[in-house]
Amino acid sequence: MTQPAATTIDRWSGGTCPFDAGWRKVMMWWFIITDGLLFAGFLGAYGYARILALRWPDQSTVFSLPYIAAMTFVLITSSATMASAVEAAKEGKRRLALRFIVLTAIGGAVFLGMQAYEWWHLIEEGARLNTNPWGDASFSAYFFLLTGFHGSHVLTGVSILITTAIRTAKGWSTADGVEMAGLYWHFVDLVWVFIFTLFYLL
Protein backbone atom coordinates (compact mmCIF):
# COMPACT_ATOMS: atom_id res chain seq x y z
CA MET A 1 0.00 0.00 0.00
CA THR A 2 1.42 3.37 -0.93
CA GLN A 3 0.68 6.54 0.99
CA PRO A 4 -0.21 9.53 -1.19
CA ALA A 5 2.50 12.21 -0.93
CA ALA A 6 1.63 14.99 1.52
CA THR A 7 0.71 18.21 -0.25
CA THR A 8 1.70 21.64 0.99
CA ILE A 9 -1.84 22.13 2.25
CA ASP A 10 -1.65 18.88 4.25
CA ARG A 11 1.64 19.95 5.77
CA TRP A 12 0.25 23.25 6.97
CA SER A 13 -3.13 21.99 8.24
CA GLY A 14 -1.99 21.12 11.73
CA GLY A 15 -1.05 17.91 13.50
CA THR A 16 2.45 18.03 12.06
CA CYS A 17 5.34 20.40 11.50
CA PRO A 18 5.13 21.93 8.03
CA PHE A 19 8.84 21.57 7.26
CA ASP A 20 9.14 17.81 7.85
CA ALA A 21 11.44 18.74 10.73
CA GLY A 22 10.95 18.49 14.47
CA TRP A 23 10.47 21.56 16.64
CA ARG A 24 14.11 21.31 17.67
CA LYS A 25 15.30 22.01 14.17
CA VAL A 26 12.75 24.79 13.68
CA MET A 27 14.03 26.38 16.87
CA MET A 28 17.67 25.99 15.82
CA TRP A 29 16.98 27.66 12.49
CA TRP A 30 15.30 30.61 14.18
CA PHE A 31 18.11 30.82 16.68
CA ILE A 32 20.59 30.98 13.81
CA ILE A 33 18.57 33.77 12.21
CA THR A 34 18.56 35.84 15.39
CA ASP A 35 22.23 35.13 16.08
CA GLY A 36 22.99 36.04 12.49
CA LEU A 37 21.31 39.37 13.05
CA LEU A 38 23.57 39.95 16.05
CA PHE A 39 26.54 39.77 13.69
CA ALA A 40 24.63 41.86 11.18
CA GLY A 41 24.38 44.49 13.92
CA PHE A 42 28.13 44.39 14.57
CA LEU A 43 29.00 44.36 10.87
CA GLY A 44 26.52 47.16 10.17
CA ALA A 45 28.09 49.25 12.92
CA TYR A 46 31.51 48.47 11.47
CA GLY A 47 30.38 49.60 8.03
CA TYR A 48 29.02 52.82 9.51
CA ALA A 49 32.31 53.51 11.30
CA ARG A 50 34.31 52.60 8.20
CA ILE A 51 32.46 55.20 6.15
CA LEU A 52 33.10 57.84 8.82
CA ALA A 53 36.74 56.87 9.23
CA LEU A 54 39.44 59.37 8.30
CA ARG A 55 42.50 57.12 8.35
CA TRP A 56 41.53 53.48 7.92
CA PRO A 57 44.76 51.43 7.72
CA ASP A 58 45.62 49.28 4.70
CA GLN A 59 44.80 45.79 5.98
CA SER A 60 47.48 44.07 3.92
CA THR A 61 50.18 45.93 5.82
CA VAL A 62 48.68 45.11 9.22
CA PHE A 63 47.67 41.49 8.73
CA SER A 64 49.54 38.68 7.10
CA LEU A 65 46.88 37.74 4.61
CA PRO A 66 48.34 34.30 3.77
CA TYR A 67 48.08 33.50 7.49
CA ILE A 68 44.42 34.61 7.57
CA ALA A 69 43.78 32.62 4.41
CA ALA A 70 45.20 29.56 6.14
CA MET A 71 42.87 30.16 9.12
CA THR A 72 39.96 30.46 6.73
CA PHE A 73 41.01 27.28 4.96
CA VAL A 74 41.10 25.36 8.26
CA LEU A 75 37.62 26.58 9.21
CA ILE A 76 36.07 25.85 5.81
CA THR A 77 37.64 22.39 5.82
CA SER A 78 36.07 21.77 9.22
CA SER A 79 32.69 22.54 7.62
CA ALA A 80 33.37 19.81 5.08
CA THR A 81 34.26 17.26 7.76
CA MET A 82 31.11 18.30 9.66
CA ALA A 83 28.98 17.64 6.58
CA SER A 84 30.58 14.20 6.33
CA ALA A 85 29.81 13.56 10.00
CA VAL A 86 26.14 14.44 9.48
CA GLU A 87 25.98 12.18 6.44
CA ALA A 88 27.62 9.30 8.34
CA ALA A 89 25.28 9.76 11.31
CA LYS A 90 22.27 9.65 8.97
CA GLU A 91 23.51 6.37 7.51
CA GLY A 92 23.96 4.99 11.02
CA LYS A 93 27.75 4.72 10.77
CA ARG A 94 28.48 5.75 14.33
CA ARG A 95 32.27 5.23 14.39
CA LEU A 96 32.75 7.10 11.13
CA ALA A 97 30.54 9.96 12.37
CA LEU A 98 32.54 10.11 15.60
CA ARG A 99 35.80 10.33 13.66
CA PHE A 100 34.51 13.22 11.55
CA ILE A 101 33.10 15.07 14.56
CA VAL A 102 36.46 14.83 16.32
CA LEU A 103 38.20 16.07 13.17
CA THR A 104 35.82 19.02 13.02
CA ALA A 105 36.45 19.87 16.66
CA ILE A 106 40.20 19.73 16.01
CA GLY A 107 39.73 22.08 13.06
CA GLY A 108 37.85 24.50 15.30
CA ALA A 109 40.52 24.29 18.00
CA VAL A 110 43.29 24.92 15.46
CA PHE A 111 41.40 27.97 14.20
CA LEU A 112 41.05 29.28 17.75
CA GLY A 113 44.76 28.70 18.38
CA MET A 114 45.69 30.57 15.20
CA GLN A 115 43.38 33.41 16.17
CA ALA A 116 44.90 33.58 19.65
CA TYR A 117 48.34 33.83 18.04
CA GLU A 118 47.12 36.60 15.73
CA TRP A 119 45.71 38.56 18.69
CA TRP A 120 48.92 38.09 20.66
CA HIS A 121 50.98 39.25 17.70
CA LEU A 122 48.87 42.38 17.13
CA ILE A 123 48.79 43.24 20.85
CA GLU A 124 52.61 42.93 20.84
CA GLU A 125 52.70 45.50 18.06
CA GLY A 126 50.63 47.89 20.13
CA ALA A 127 47.01 47.25 19.12
CA ARG A 128 44.57 48.01 21.94
CA LEU A 129 40.82 48.45 22.16
CA ASN A 130 41.22 52.22 22.25
CA THR A 131 44.32 52.76 20.12
CA ASN A 132 46.59 51.22 17.51
CA PRO A 133 49.77 52.25 15.67
CA TRP A 134 48.26 52.05 12.15
CA GLY A 135 45.33 54.45 11.95
CA ASP A 136 41.91 55.20 13.39
CA ALA A 137 41.27 53.86 16.89
CA SER A 138 38.05 52.26 15.71
CA PHE A 139 40.06 49.92 13.47
CA SER A 140 41.45 47.90 16.36
CA ALA A 141 38.25 48.32 18.40
CA TYR A 142 36.16 46.73 15.68
CA PHE A 143 38.87 44.15 15.01
CA PHE A 144 38.79 42.88 18.58
CA LEU A 145 35.01 43.16 18.79
CA LEU A 146 34.26 41.25 15.59
CA THR A 147 36.91 38.55 15.85
CA GLY A 148 36.36 38.25 19.59
CA PHE A 149 32.64 37.70 19.21
CA HIS A 150 33.18 35.28 16.38
CA GLY A 151 35.88 33.49 18.36
CA SER A 152 33.53 33.08 21.32
CA HIS A 153 31.03 31.49 18.93
CA VAL A 154 33.70 29.11 17.64
CA LEU A 155 34.54 28.22 21.23
CA THR A 156 30.86 27.50 21.90
CA GLY A 157 30.80 25.42 18.72
CA VAL A 158 33.82 23.40 19.77
CA SER A 159 32.17 22.72 23.17
CA ILE A 160 29.02 21.57 21.41
CA LEU A 161 31.11 19.34 19.14
CA ILE A 162 32.94 17.80 22.09
CA THR A 163 29.61 17.11 23.80
CA THR A 164 28.25 15.59 20.59
CA ALA A 165 31.41 13.50 20.20
CA ILE A 166 31.03 12.10 23.72
CA ARG A 167 27.36 11.40 23.15
CA THR A 168 28.15 9.69 19.84
CA ALA A 169 30.91 7.61 21.43
CA LYS A 170 28.48 6.48 24.13
CA GLY A 171 25.77 5.81 21.55
CA TRP A 172 23.36 8.42 22.97
CA SER A 173 23.28 10.88 20.10
CA THR A 174 20.76 10.81 17.28
CA ALA A 175 21.31 11.70 13.64
CA ASP A 176 19.15 14.78 14.28
CA GLY A 177 21.34 15.82 17.19
CA VAL A 178 24.47 15.61 15.05
CA GLU A 179 22.72 17.54 12.31
CA MET A 180 21.78 20.33 14.73
CA ALA A 181 25.38 20.63 15.95
CA GLY A 182 26.27 20.75 12.26
CA LEU A 183 23.79 23.55 11.56
CA TYR A 184 25.37 25.67 14.26
CA TRP A 185 28.87 24.87 13.05
CA HIS A 186 28.12 25.79 9.44
CA PHE A 187 26.57 29.02 10.67
CA VAL A 188 29.70 29.94 12.62
CA ASP A 189 31.79 29.26 9.51
CA LEU A 190 29.49 31.33 7.34
CA VAL A 191 29.83 34.27 9.71
CA TRP A 192 33.60 34.00 9.37
CA VAL A 193 33.30 34.21 5.59
CA PHE A 194 31.51 37.55 6.04
CA ILE A 195 34.05 38.84 8.55
CA PHE A 196 36.95 37.68 6.39
CA THR A 197 35.52 39.40 3.32
CA LEU A 198 34.28 42.59 4.91
CA PHE A 199 37.00 43.23 7.48
CA TYR A 200 40.18 41.67 6.08
CA LEU A 201 39.73 41.94 2.32
CA LEU A 202 37.47 44.90 1.58
Binding site: W30, I33, T34, D35, G36, L37, L38, F39, A40, G41, F42, G44, A45, A49, R128, L129, N130, A137, S138, A141, L145, F149
Partner: peptide
Protein backbone atom coordinates in the same frame (compact mmCIF):
# COMPACT_ATOMS: atom_id res chain seq x y z
CA UNK B 1 11.38 40.30 18.64
CA UNK B 2 13.77 37.66 17.31
CA UNK B 3 14.72 39.86 14.37
CA UNK B 4 14.92 43.19 16.17
CA UNK B 5 16.59 42.44 19.49
CA UNK B 6 20.00 41.15 18.28
CA UNK B 7 21.16 44.48 16.81
CA UNK B 8 20.32 46.11 20.15
CA UNK B 9 22.37 43.43 21.87
CA UNK B 10 25.25 44.38 19.58
CA UNK B 11 24.74 48.04 20.49
CA UNK B 12 24.55 47.24 24.21
CA UNK B 13 27.83 45.31 24.08
CA UNK B 14 29.49 48.24 22.33
CA UNK B 15 28.06 50.69 24.87
CA UNK B 16 29.43 48.53 27.65
CA UNK B 17 32.85 48.58 25.95
CA UNK B 18 32.68 52.37 25.64
CA UNK B 19 31.85 52.67 29.30
CA UNK B 20 34.40 50.27 30.72
CA UNK B 21 37.13 49.48 28.19
CA UNK B 22 37.89 52.88 26.72
CA UNK B 23 36.61 52.30 23.19
CA UNK B 24 34.93 55.11 21.23
CA UNK B 25 32.18 53.36 19.30
Amino acid sequence: GLLAFPPLTAGAVMLLFDRHFGTSF
